[in-house]
């Protein structure tokens, strides 16, 4: 059996978990056949998914920003930022929650 290879980056030891959602959520499905119970896996995948738009995340970001001393020098501005509109879309995070919920639903279906 060929060992899984990795061309660039990442940690080989975590490879299985790094691509776990591919093995669990994708791949060919034959709809007349059952899938084994994924009890136990639900926790695994749900835990792995981060919810950006949550109270905890808001507080974590606020505290992380508060810790920053912007006068202590910074890395250069990447050109990427020139592409970001100044106006930040209101209500965008709600969409993120929906997206994550969908992802979870798909993962445990």
């Amino acid at each position: 059996m060929a060992a899984m290879t990795q061309t660039t980056g990442g940690r080989p030891a975590n490879m299985l978990y790094s691509v776990l959602e591919l093995i669990l959520d994708r791949g060919l499905v034959i709809d007349v056949f059952v899938r084994v119970s994924l009890v136990g896996i639900e926790l695994l995948t749900v835990d792995a998914r981060i919810v950006v738009a949550s109270v905890d995340t808001y507080l974590r970001f606020a505290e992380a920003c508060n810790r920053l001393d912007l006068n202590a020098g910074s890395v250069g501005l990447p050109e990427l930022f020139s592409e970001i509109p100044e106006e930040l879309a209101e209500g965008k995070t709600v969409g993120v929650i929906d997206g994550v919920r969908r992802a979870i639903t798909e993962a445990v279906r």
Partner: peptide, 16 residues
């Protein structure tokens, strides 16, 4: 205050 500020940061992170 922190919640409101953190929410704005989260929106900026999302856009980024």
């Amino acid at each position: 205050d922190r919640l409101a500020f953190g929410g704005r940061v989260a929106a900026a992170v999302d856009t980024w």
